[in-house]
Design a protein around this nucleic acid. Structure first.
Length: 628
RNA sequence: GGCUAUGUAGCUCAGCUGGUUAGAGCACACGACUCAUAAUCGUGGUGUCGGCGGUUCAAGUCCGCCCAUAGCCA
């Protein structure tokens, strides 16, 4: 079987800037493309912009621009730079206003016309300008199509129609012969359900005098092509215009959002059939990204996350990884900055990045900075390592990308455990056990090599960096199925930057976003009254046995004493505090700091040099006095 | 109204064709360790597996009804 993979991401409608939903889909596609490349598939990955239609003509007019200038801007200044910064590894970017695309659309239109599948008819009905289609009265809610801002208008016009209904029985049969065509299965069921009722014929043109912005119908200059017949063909025109159609088309995977299922699952196969072209191989349907609270994301709701802001703050690898790891393909998934921060800190920094640091330090310390001789392929870690690619492949084939990544991370955690178990630092104390030590370190290096390759589709820059920090280059997926390919004697770099520095999410910002109407962090008197401030006298102060920065204070709060742990050891000696009166937050939830319970908090301020200064009463107050 | 999904630990999710005391990661608590990015490793859950009923020796897993959520169709 030839290993060829063609993949398309939906082409984006060029009427506004890209949002997290666009980015999500491209990152899924990028993962699949990179995965297949690593697995030895000759791969072609295409996306682009859909640039025709009435809505774009109107958006251009609103912007005071000609349509072409407007879509040039949206495509070249908004979408493409964003995807390049996100390292979306597409091989071609197809724009529907390009000559190569227009020529192909006209060629296909002619074919379908000659096959007798296009006819001319007059149509009258309610037309929604917002959705660019005729609507039925039943669809309307209070006279307006849901999602539209204006009610539909009565419109009568003559259009060309594609005999889609004619192909309905064929499509039903095709779907039953190809049960894996549409995935996940739920969407296949949905399509089959749609096909139980007549699907009607598809209007494929608009009169040019009303909508001049489109591809002319080749045999009738007074009409332009309607948006779907134009847009869907971009998946094919990209290949055809590069002379790659024959080779790649039969292997086509389309990745789309669930909102455009019908055009891809019904319009598109019938169009291809009529034009005498093979049907694509797979339609992968993903869900939508939701806000963290599970609600829909939207500009008007004020809860939209900006993918480029996340990119700037957390880096391209963490964004890819989090989006792939924390969503389930096919279902809607909540997502936000907290998710990225969480995944960056726990999976990437703690588990993976820290593992790299550990092994690097030990190689430098115990092995002269050189990768030692290979360890036995019979160890448990080795067996699990060479078997990992198989497990990952299986999950990716089933489009369970989040489980594929978890599979690799489990292995990474296993490597951390392995180090804890063999305790190389103990082996290092006994010169007679140098061999054992080296074998253990080799095992970890080799495990990291394998894991880094399998994570590379989700970590476009850091997987390579990780290997570089061990003096290693690139490997294919297949090369992770053999133990011992890290060359012994490789000198690792003396210095390597922290692979994944940790970051905190600004949760207070995220909250402000979800509640745009809140009065910008101002609190009411009620909130203030919840805090119980008390004057407290220091009876005893001592250093925390397990922390340099902490002091343990015993406080007299009038009717009782309390123990509070405070991070002021760098600025106050224990003796200097005894007898001082401080301000205590008396109703703070107790916390345990490095093993010692803290029953409250001492108020303190910070000067320009960052010195901490405790707050004391200006005149004497009795212990336990309430502070307001 | 019809249809299709989903509903499993605080959160995100695994649980194949029904079969031992229902699992993982995160978060949390405690302990161990020091090679490491205050990292890692170990231990710790009384979860009505949405509800009710049914089939079965046995149901999270099959069937029926109901509830909730999402979506499609009308």
């Amino acid at each position: 079987m030839s290993k060829v993979f063609y993949e398309t991401a939906a082409i984006d409608y060029a009427n506004a800037a890209p949002h997290i939903g666009h980015v999500y889909e491209k990152i899924i596609c990028d993962f699949l493309a990179r995965f297949h490349r690593l697995d030895g598939y000759e791969t072609n990955f295409v996306t682009g912009t859909d640039e025709h239609g009435e809505k774009i003509a109107r958006a251009a007019k609103n912007a005071g621009q000609e349509p072409q200038a407007f879509v040039d801007y949206v495509s070249e200044q908004l979408f493409q730079p964003a995807y390049q910064r996100l390292l979306i590894s597409y091989d071609d970017y197809i724009r529907t206003s390009s000559e190569r695309h227009k020529r192909y659309v006209q060629e296909i239109l002619r074919k379908v016309y000659e096959a007798g599948d296009i006819y001319y008819a007059e149509y009258e009905g309610l037309y929604s300008v917002g959705s660019e289609r005729f609507v039925t009265e039943k669809e309307l809610v209070n006279g307006v199509l849901p999602g539209d801002s204006e009610p539909p208008i009565l419109r009568k016009e003559a259009n060309y129609f594609f005999r889609m209904e004619k192909y309905r029985p064929w499509l039903i049969e095709y779907l039953s012969e190809h049960p894996d065509l549409i995935q996940p299965q739920a969407y296949r069921n949905e399509v089959l359900e749609m096909l139980k009722e007549p699907i009607g014929d598809l209007s494929i043109s608009r009169p040019k005098d009303r909508v001049p912005w489109g591809i002319p119908i080749p045999w009738d200059e007074n009409h332009v092509t309607y948006v779907w017949f134009d847009a869907l063909l971009a998946y094919a025109s990209s290949l055809e215009s590069r002379g790659l159609f024959e080779k790649f088309w039969p292997h086509a995977w389309h990745v789309i959002g669930k909102d455009i299922l019908k055009p891809h699952a019904i319009f598109w196969p019938t169009m291809l059939k009529s034009a005498g072209l093979p049907i694509y191989k797979r339609l992968v349907v993903h869900g939508h990204i939701l806000a963290m609270d599970g609600r829909k994301m939207g500009k008007s709701l004020g809860n939209a996350v900006d993918p480029l802001a996340l990119l700037d703050k957390y880096g391209v690898d963490a964004l890819h990884y989090a989006l792939l790891r924390d969503t389930t393909l096919g279902s809607d998934s909540p997502f936000g900055e907290e998710v990225v921060a969480q995944r960056l800190n726990s999976d990437l920094a703690n588990d993976l990045g820290n593992l790299l640091s550990r092994v690097r330090t030990m190689l430098l310390k115990y092995c002269g900075g050189v990768i030692p001789a290979p360890s036995s392929p019979d160890s448990e870690v080795a067996r699990a390592g060479v078997a990992l690619a198989g497990k990952v492949r299986k999950e990716v084939d089933a489009l369970r990308i989040h489980l594929a990544l978890e599979e690799v991370l489990q292995y990474v955690r296993g490597l951390n455990k392995f180090i804890n178990d063999v305790k190389p630092w103990e082996l290092a104390r006994d010169p007679g056990r140098q061999k054992e030590l080296e074998s253990a370190l080799y095992t970890v290096v080799e495990g990291l090599r394998i894991a880094s390759v399998l994570l590379e589709p989700a970590l476009p820059t850091k997987a390579k960096e990780l290997r570089a920090a061990l003096g290693l280059g690139d490997y294919t997926l297949e090369q992770t199925e053999t133990w011992g390919l890290s060359p012994a004697g490789t000198r690792i770099p003396e210095e390597a930057p922290i692979l994944f520095p940790k970051l905190e999410a600004r949760t207070e910002n995220a909250q402000a976003k979800t509640e745009p109407q809140s009065s910008n962090a101002l609190i009411g008197i009620d909130d203030f009254a919840k805090v119980d401030f008390r004057v407290a006298e220091v009876l005893k102060a001592e250093k925390h046995p397990k922390a340099d920065k902490l002091l343990i204070l015993t406080l007299n709060v009038g009717d009782h004493t309390r123990q509070v742990v405070s991070g002021i050891a760098q600025y106050y000696t224990p003796e200097s505090l005894v007898g001082k009166k401080l301000v205590l937050v008396a109703n703070l939830k107790p916390a345990v700091l490095r093993g010692v319970e803290s029953q409250g908090m001492i108020l303190a301020g910070e000067d320009a040099q960052g010195r901490i200064v405790v707050i004391t009463p200006e005149q004497d107050l009795p212990p336990g006095a309430k502070v307001r």
